[in-house]
Every structure is written in structure tokens, then in C-alpha cells.
């Protein structure tokens, strides 16, 4: 997060507490009941504000939402990640197995157990 104030009209995210722990629904598991219910909304900043300070945004639907400035020009950073080693050989093994079984079924020289 930048330490700079957001510009008026900049695309930002605000965070606000919707319910304090004492105000939450009954019958929640302990680990949930002890936490506030938080909400994040993105919109166009309606003024210049420093990160962490209260401000208002106008959302895509035109609603005005007040909250603590939590991000400027929010990014999407989700990825595919690295190859899980447990899956790396799946394609090779299954293709070999299929080829072996088909060759055997056709009466060819292939070993039906190939690839197992």
C-alpha cells in the first residue's frame, strides 16, 4: 500500500466493520464469534485521504460507502502457482497405459499392464 494520499476520483478499496464481535449472530463457532464482521468495497474516492483514514467512495453502482482506506488501485495477484509434484506424471502415465491397453485389445504386441 502506498503511503501517499489517494486522489479524488482514484479507484480505491475501503474496509469497514459491519458488526462488532458482541453484535454477531448466535450459534457461531468460537473462532468466528470472537471476530468482527468486516466488509471491503471498491469505488472512486470522493476526496483525498491517507491510507488507514476514513473516507467515502462511490461504487460501480453509484452507492456512497464510508470506510477506512485500505488499498489504492487494487491489484489481482492470484496465480496458478508451481506444478504440484503429485500431478506431474499423471498425463504421461495415463497416456502410456491407454496406449498399452488399446494395443493389447487390438491383438498387438503391447502389454495391457504397461504404464501401471
Amino acid at each position: 500500500m502506498s503511503a501517499d494520499r489517494c486522489r479524488t476520483g482514484q479507484w480505491v478499496e475501503v474496509e469497514r466493520v459491519l458488526l462488532e464481535p458482541a453484535d454477531r449472530a448466535a450459534n457461531l463457532p468460537e473462532e468466528t464469534a470472537g471476530k468482527p464482521l468486516l466488509v471491503w468495497v471498491k469505488g472512486f474516492a470522493l476526496g483525498e485521504t491517507a491510507p488507514g483514514d476514513e473516507c467515502e467512495v462511490e461504487t460501480m453502482t453509484g452507492r456512497v460507502v464510508r470506510g477506512r482506506l485500505s488499498d489504492l488501485d487494487p491489484a489481482y495477484t492470484h496465480t496458478f502457482g508451481s506444478q504440484p509434484p503429485e500431478l506431474a506424471g499423471v498425463g504421461r502415465d495415463l497416456r502410456a497405459r491407454l496406449a498399452g491397453w488399446r494395443a493389447a485389445a487390438a491383438g498387438g504386441p503391447g502389454d495391457p499392464k504397461a504404464g501401471e
Binding site: R24, A25, T32, L37, K42
Partner: peptide, 16 residues
Amino acid sequence: CEAFGAEVVQMTVGPE
């Protein structure tokens, strides 16, 4: 959802 122009209201866990 945001790519299609929706406003997305993101919350923490809970039936509220």
C-alpha cells in the same frame, strides 16, 4: 465479476 462491471461486496466468514 468486476471485469463484467459489477460492484463486489466482500465479507469475512459468517451467516450475517
